[in-house]
Amino acid sequence: MGSMTQRNILRAYGDREGDGMVQMSFTLRILPGDRAREVAKRFAEAHGLREPLVTAMEQASREHTYFVVYGHSQHGVDTSDIEVEELAAQPLTRDQIEEQAKKLGRKIVVVGACTGSDAHTVGIDAILNYKGFAGEKGLESFKCIDAHNLGAQVENAELCEKAKALGADALLVSQVITQRNCHKENAAALVELATRQGFRDKVILLLGGPRIDHNLAVELGFDAGFGPGTKPITVASFLVERLVGRV
């Protein structure tokens, strides 16, 4: 480990230390030719590539050309500046989750919805529904989880009612639409409502969506936040750890 003051510059490594070799591929609305090749080179240079070499230039439509360019990236990154916490722990495996959850002696009840005016269920469906997303099965596929997807445009009051009726361990709120920060207001309103109704401390509140991250969710009063690319197993793992503890 270097000291905090020592700079440690990383550059892309291709064939030799420090050569900065990278490739990029892209499409431009221009037809192939010498001029197009020059355009592609300039485009690469504008991205910081020195001595760009256009290795492919093929017409991909009536108006577009596809390019591959190699070049020496001039950029380096000082790693001593980077402050990112490594995730404390890897998510549990599916088997570990099922095994751990047995200690609870019952199923974990999860209720999810897109709240307010939001009609975009892609996120909540990906996390909750059996089919999940990109081959990652949703919470419904876990034996230890009883998942209820209330769908879209669910009002906070309705979500709270349903959560109480089902004896929910966790509420999953998805907010995709972000016009004028309505996602924040709506999410904060849920926390307030749950607090007023006296069950905030009895449930785990999770917030998800493309513009959500953990810090924002915590700031809004949730227990955790999940951004784009979150896998259902990560959520399942989080819930089991919260409710039962780690393996």
């Binding site: 591929s25 892209f26 499409t27 093929e58 991909a60 439509s61 577009h64 596809y66 990109a134 081959g135």
Partner: peptide, 14 residues
Amino acid sequence: SEAVHTPLLMDRYL
């Protein structure tokens, strides 16, 4: 680009 994004023009071409 499956599992990354909906296909770009270039992805489909390739």
